[in-house]
C-alpha cells in the first residue's frame, strides 16, 4: 500500500513539474517572436509591447508591472530603447531576471541629433539591431540559454526549438541576399522616416538618409529636410519610405518637392498586425517593399 502511495505521489509531482511553465514577459515584439519559437508550449508568455506600438514611446502600466513581477524572466532588446528599464528593475525587485537579448550584439553608433529632444548627444547606440538577421540569430542563442538556465528540465526542447528557428533564419537570410541582389548598388539609397535601418544598410550595402534621428520623438529641422530634397533630386532616388507607426506628413511633402514616390510603409520598430506578424514576415515585407520601390 505504501509503495502504491509513493508511486502515485511521485507521478503527481512529476506531472506537476512537467506542466510548470516558465513565466516570461517580453518588452519587444521581436523578443516575443523569438520567445514563442524557442519556448513553444513550455513557456507562459506575456507580450507587454504589442504589435504596432512604438517602443520608443512605450511606458509600462501598473498592470504590466504586476505581470513583470510575476514572471521569472523579462526579455528586452536593450541599447537604451527601453528608457524605463532601470525604474522597472527597481520596482519589481531582484526576484525577476532581466535578459538583455542584445547584449552580445555589437552596436552601431551614430551622431546624435540636434540638442533639445530629450536624449543624449555626441554619439549614441542604434537600438534597432533586429534589422540584421545575423543579430537575431545571436539573440535567439541568448534566449535559448536563458530558458535552459531557468528551466533545465526542458533543455532538450529549448535546444531543438532554437535549432529549428535558427534554420528558418538561415533560409530567411538566403532569401534576403537574393532579393537585395535584384537591386543595383547605385540604387541602394534608403530615405526613411526615422533612423532605424543602419543594421540593414550595413548588411546589404544601402546608404540611409533618415528624416528624423534614432528616436521617433526627434523632430526634423527644415535645414535637414531641404538637404534631403537636394540629395533625392541629385541622386535620382525613386522612392521614400514611411513607417507603420509614423505619420508620413514630412515624407509626403518631400515627394511633392522631388517627384520621388512614397514607396510604402516599413516596419522599423517591431512587428505589425497585418503583413508582419512574425519576424521572418517582417523582413520579407520590408525588403520586398524597399527593392520594389527603388528598382
Amino acid at each position: 500500500m505504501k509503495s502504491i502511495l509513493a508511486i502515485l505521489l511521485t507521478s503527481f509531482f512529476s506531472l506537476a513539474a512537467a506542466h510548470a511553465e516558465l513565466k516570461v514577459a517580453s518588452l519587444s515584439t521581436i523578443t516575443t517572436d523569438i520567445a514563442k519559437n524557442v519556448g513553444g508550449d513550455k513557456i507562459d508568455l506575456f507580450p507587454l509591447v504589442k504589435a504596432g506600438v512604438d517602443p520608443h514611446e512605450f511606458q509600462p502600466t501598473p498592470s504590466d508591472v504586476k505581470k513583470i513581477a510575476d514572471a521569472s524572466l523579462v526579455l528586452f532588446t536593450g541599447k537604451h530603447i527601453e528608457g524605463y528599464l532601470t525604474k522597472l528593475e527597481e520596482t519589481v525587485g531582484g526576484k525577476v531576471q532581466f535578459i538583455d537579448t542584445g547584449a552580445t550584439i555589437n552596436a552601431l553608433t551614430m551622431a546624435a541629433e540636434e540638442p533639445g529632444h530629450g536624449h543624449s548627444h555626441g554619439t549614441e547606440e542604434d537600438p534597432h539591431w533586429w534589422h540584421s538577421i545575423k543579430n537575431v540569430k545571436k539573440a535567439t542563442a541568448v534566449v535559448r540559454d536563458a530558458f535552459i538556465k531557468a528551466d533545465a528540465a526542458n533543455k532538450t526542447v529549448y535546444e531543438k526549438n532554437a535549432a529549428d528557428y535558427l534554420a528558418k533564419l538561415d533560409e530567411l537570410q538566403a532569401w534576403a541576399t537574393e532579393k537585395v541582389a535584384e537591386l543595383p548598388r547605385a540604387k541602394r539609397k534608403l530615405v526613411t522616416s526615422h533612423d532605424a535601418f543602419q543594421y540593414l544598410a550595413k548588411d546589404y550595402g544601402f546608404t540611409v538618409h533618415p528624416v528624423q534621428g534614432i528616436s521617433t520623438a526627434d523632430e526634423p529641422s527644415s535645414k535637414k529636410v531641404s538637404a534631403l530634397i537636394v540629395l533625392i533630386k541629385k541622386q535620382g532616388v525613386k522612392a521614400v519610405f514611411a513607417e507603420n507607426i509614423e505619420n508620413p506628413k514630412v515624407l509626403t511633402e518631400i515627394t511633392k518637392e522631388t517627384g520621388a514616390k512614397l514607396g510604402g510603409e516599413l516596419y522599423a520598430d517591431g512587428l505589425g498586425d497585418e503583413e508582419a506578424t512574425t519576424y521572418p514576415d517582417m523582413v520579407r515585407y520590408n525588403l520586398t517593399t524597399i527593392v520594389g520601390g527603388l528598382k
Binding site: 541576399t177 537574393e178 537585395v180 541582389a181 543595383p184 548598388r185 547605385a186 541602394r188 550595402g205
Partner: peptide
Amino acid sequence: VPPEGVDLLLK
C-alpha cells in the same frame, strides 16, 4: 562597374 560597385550573386 560604377563607383558603388556591383554585386555578383553566387548560389
